[in-house]
């Protein structure tokens, strides 16, 4: 089946679901602060609200230090939120206890960025993959666990014999496949991919991305895909969240992000991404950002982007712009769009 056909199928499916697109995750005014030495507080995520619908891929992009990883980790309960709510399938994750908590940890999984440090070097690959299964007692016998491990290895394109090997015997791309197998072992519904391809070579990146999208289709997963490589995020995501210094600058579907960016930061970010085509590249004009990224311990009052924005007005220094929908499915947090609403 080629991608075109799949898209068509998805589209008809979308139509059926359009009436009640089920929200799998609702994030409301989420804040995550880290205390630092002295009295300073690092505001990694500062008042972020968004929804994730069932079956979609949401991409989060932004420069390093913008809070995208912290945001995702807080969403799946790896960090307790400082304030605000994360609602997963209608339930606040901070209030989950007992059996509910267990089923939440089973349904939500993460694939980490660094395939070198996120896998235990002392464990055999088969044990790494089955660790989650064992924790949730998902199989009955030893044979069943082994069988499952083999299935999972085959699913991600590795050989069954690999189950008895150790992690150091594998290349970066293979390790990332092991990480994917581990995350998908417990049959999750919602998977966070935290820069799953950044540490890999270009040709291997495409392998992993294709594998992820294949698994997503087969298992009807919901993905949150974090990366700083905007071209890749655009390719895999249905909707994209652009973050800047702990806040959301823009949320839009992936097509209109490139064709019609609204926020000045998004525009600058897009123009900085090199395009592998000399003719196109020569004609593009780059929007240069002035100044440097402010420190998240002492972010500017008002709009976070104010010191680097050439359209900054007086109101931008006073008030923090709120995320507002300017077109259907396209929200932006910028005072420039105040009049349009």
């Amino acid at each position: 089946m080629d991608r075109g056909e799949i898209k068509d199928k998805e589209r008809t499916k979308d139509k059926e679901e359009v009436k009640d697109r089920e929200k799998i995750l609702e994030v409301k005014h989420l804040k995550k602060y880290f205390k630092q030495s002295g009295k300073s507080v690092l505001k990694a995520v500062d008042d972020v609200s968004f929804d994730v619908y069932k079956g979609e891929t949401v991409g989060i992009v932004g420069e390093s230090g913008c809070g995208k990883t912290t945001c995702a980790r807080t969403c799946i309960g790896m960090y307790p939120a400082t304030s605000g709510e994360v609602i997963y399938k209608g339930k606040d994750i901070s209030k989950l206890r007992g059996a509910e908590k267990r089923s939440f940890t089973k349904e939500v999984q993460i694939i980490f960025q660094d395939p070198y440090s996120s896998l235990d070097p002392k464990m055999r690959v088969g044990d790494i993959i089955c660790e989650g299964l064992r924790a949730h007692k998902m199989c009955k016998s030893k044979e069943e666990y082994n069988k499952r491990a083999v299935e999972l290895l085959e699913m991600v394109g590795l050989n069954p014999e690999h189950a008895n090997r150790y992690v150091h015997e594998f290349s970066g791309g293979q390790r990332q496949r092991i990480g994917i197998a581990r995350a998908l072992a417990v049959e999750p519904d919602f998977v966070v991919c935290d820069e799953p391809i950044s540490a890999l070579d270009v040709s291997i990146q495409a392998q992993i991305v294709n594998l992820l999208s294949k698994l997503k289709r087969e298992k009807e997963l919901t993905f949150m895909f974090i990366a700083h490589d905007l071209s890749m995020v655009k390719y895999v995501s249905d909707r994209i969240i652009v973050m800047y210094l702990g806040t959301i600058a823009e949320i839009t579907d992936s097509k209109s992000l490139y064709s019609d960016p609204k926020h000045p930061y998004t525009k600058a970010l897009l123009s900085a991404i090199p395009i592998p085509d000399p003719k196109v590249e020569k004609e593009r004009e780059r929007i240069k950002l002035q100044g440097e990224l402010p420190s998240p311990t002492d972010p500017p009052k008002g709009c976070r982007f104010i010191n680097r924005c050439k359209f900054a007005k007086e109101i931008c220094a006073r008030e923090m712009p709120q995320l507002r929908e300017v077109e259907k499915g396209h929200s932006v947090a910028c005072h420039l769009y105040d009049e349009q609403i």
């Binding site: 080629d2 991608r3 075109g4 898209k7 270009v202 040709s203 291997i204 990146q205 495409a206 392998q207 991305v209 294709n210 999208s213 905007l230 071209s231 890749m232 655009k234 390719y235 097509k255 490139y258 897009l270 991404i273 395009i275 592998p276 085509d277 196109v280």
Partner: peptide, 15 residues
């Protein structure tokens, strides 16, 4: 094997 930012590609990435 790299997606292009400026094009809307429907095809699967070559790898």
């Amino acid at each position: 094997s790299v997606p292009r930012l400026d094009l809307d590609e429907e095809k699967e990435l070559e790898f």
